Computed example of a mutant assay.
Amino acid sequence: MSRIWFAQPLETVATWWRIDRRDGVSLGFTTHDGDLWFDGLLHRAAPGMMPAAIRRSAGFDADSAEVDGAIAHDSISADDLAAGRYDGARVAVGLVDWQSLEHEAIYAGTIGSVTQDSDSFSAQLTSRKGDLARDPVPRTSPCCRADFCGQGCGLSAARFTHEGVLTAFDGTHNAVAFNSTATPAQLLGGELRWLEGPYAGIAMTIVALAGDALVLDQPLDRAMSAGMRARLKEGCDHTLATCASRFGNAVNFRGEPFLPGNDMVIRYGLPS
């Protein structure tokens, strides 16, 4: 957009921000006193929420931003913040002309840490420039570095994803049991995404087995009942033996299981 903002003594400009959560929910807000519809999303008036500060630089240093707000709007609740529904969500902040609806994004990033204090919250935003600080060069490892059914693995995620129905819930051991076509052993190390219930949309990792039940990495402190549906993705221990025997995918194995380790450096020759 070629518009120059704040070029006139009087402008009809408001701030907007958009939140795309990892569970597929998108929320839009604006500092205008009325709701605004643009970019395919209704941005609701939320004068209690304001970007505290936005710093942009021309270099490679990550830009910083922060959003402060009140937990007053129906779209943002203390329970959702505590459940981590906003962790890692994508955020865009910009300006909008509330008469012509011309708009432009001035910041894009993800939500990092969220702090909560009674009826208010503060979200620290991480700029996309932060990706430039990541080292893209892979390191050698005996196990596969690729994400299961992700880039480099080559297997279809749909093939190893199943829908299950909750049959038992054990809040003491943080374990759940499902009626599914996949066995618990196949699901170990995989992912569970709730489709119904108080955790709908939230993904959890299956870290252990308790008999036929699945132990999850996040606490289950809300009431749950049998019959709730979830999407279950099988897991992989990232070893060459499993990749070859269970999945028949050794050709795409991203690891070096036969590469000598650091202990080779301290070895010394022995007389024959």
Rank of each mutant, 00 (worst) to 15 (best):
P198L: 12
T181V: 12
R222C: 06
P260M: 06
V165I: 15
A7F: 09
A46Y: 09
S100K: 02
P260N: 05
G59D: 14
A108K: 08
R56M: 10
R222G: 01
T126P: 03
A182R: 05
E11P: 01
A105H: 08
F178M: 05
S225M: 10
F60Q: 11
S57G: 13
T12S: 09
A123K: 05
T115S: 13
L214G: 08
A70W: 03
C153R: 04
N249K: 08
T30S: 15
A226G: 12
V215P: 08
A52H: 13
A53K: 15
A146Q: 07
D80I: 00
R231I: 02
I202E: 11
N262A: 12
L10A: 09
T167G: 05
N249E: 01
L188Y: 07
D147V: 14
D119E: 10
L155H: 00
V137S: 06
D221M: 04
V91M: 04
A65T: 02
C144H: 14
H103L: 02
A203E: 12
G28E: 08
A158G: 01
Y268V: 11
F253A: 14
C153Q: 03
A108C: 11
T161R: 14
V91L: 05
T181H: 06
G164H: 09
D263E: 14
S120P: 00
D97H: 01
I4V: 15
G171S: 11
G235D: 08
A185G: 02
L95P: 12
I111P: 00
W5P: 02
G150K: 10
D221V: 11
P260T: 01
A89W: 06
D117S: 11
L209W: 07
G112D: 03
H103W: 14
L192C: 11
S127P: 09
P9Y: 01
K129S: 03
L132E: 00
I71N: 00
R222T: 02
P271R: 14
A7C: 00
L27Y: 07
A46G: 01
R193L: 04
T15C: 12
A70Y: 02
D63K: 07
A208R: 14
G59L: 06
F169N: 04
D97F: 12
